[in-house]
């Protein structure tokens, strides 16, 4: 690994992407290394994508931007599209998108997901930073918070993650985010969060009022996506035709209906 380590952490607003970037940057600074942290601000308060560009080096850092990251940590599926271009051949990927299920199994709240990723990052940073140094900064930053012990547990869990928990590839997410599919015997209904802008035209045009705004799923601008009630849906495809951005795909399973 080169003398200048370039790290990119990507997630959703509110996940604590900038927090862990700050902890690493400060640990490096205290350890008398050069460190640089550039947060990428956007509409993250509304649930947009949040990126942290981080560099650690033993010599002065010449330029704040970089073209390819050495380490890429991805915390949320929606961030993948924004960071794809920073992936080079040497890039080590930490794909923590589905880590929340493991955390819940261990009775750790998903709010500590970022600290688990920090724990996993620690093993890549060993050339520059010791685990103790990171733990010390973690203490400085978060000791006052009520869930500090939970965060510590997540930090130790993160160091032990395997390839299965946090894959080193971006998988399906390469071009399109995985569609949200709901289906029953008659209808296959796919929605693409990457394309949906949340205009609501499909909801208004649905003749059976089968569509409504979801309280969970978000589209590309962080706006609510429509969700379908398959019991009401007749597969007329009006939503698919109306959708300006091709974010809905409906397939009527005729073969099954004939039987």
């Amino acid at each position: 690994m080169s003398e200048n380590l370039k790290i990119l952490i990507a997630g959703e607003g509110g996940q604590g992407v900038q927090t862990i970037a700050e902890i690493i940057a400060k640990a490096a600074f205290v350890g008398k290394l050069e460190s640089l942290h550039i947060p990428n601000f956007g509409v993250e308060q509304r649930g947009g994508v949040s990126l942290a560009f981080l560099q650690i080096s033993k010599s002065p850092i010449p330029y704040p931007k970089f073209l390819k990251a050495d380490i890429l940590a991805v915390l949320a599926s929606r961030a993948v599209g924004r960071v794809e271009k920073y992936v080079g051949r040497q890039t080590k990927i930490i794909n923590a998108i589905h880590l929340d299920t493991l955390l819940l199994e261990r009775k750790i709240q998903t709010t500590s997901l970022n600290i688990a990723v920090l724990g996993n990052l620690a093993k890549f940073l060993s050339q520059f930073l010791s685990i103790e140094a990171l733990e010390e900064q973690l203490h400085v930053k978060l000791a006052d918070k009520p869930n500090y012990n939970e965060n510590l547990n997540a930090f130790h869990l993160g160091q032990l993650l395997t390839e299965k928990d946090a894959p080193s590839h971006l998988g399906y997410y390469k071009r399109y985010l995985k569609p949200l599919v709901s289906q029953n015997n008659h209808i296959f209904f796919a929605r693409f969060p990457y394309l949906c802008k949340g205009c609501g035209l499909c909801i208004e045009r649905c003749p059976k009022n089968a569509l409504s705004f979801s309280k969970v799923d978000l589209g590309v601008y962080g706006t609510p996506m429509p969700q379908v009630d398959l019991d009401k849906c007749i597969g007329c495809k009006i939503c698919q035709i109306t959708c300006p951005d091709c974010a809905i795909k409906v397939v009527k399973k005729q073969k099954i209906k004939k039987n």
């Binding site: 990457y194 802008k197 949340g198 205009c199 590309v220 601008y221 300006p244 091709c246």
Partner: peptide, 19 residues
Amino acid sequence: PSFPKCYKEKSWPSLFCPG
């Protein structure tokens, strides 16, 4: 997504406003 074949998939989502 059910794009027409002549669409350039890279350019989507488009720059148009929602709705």
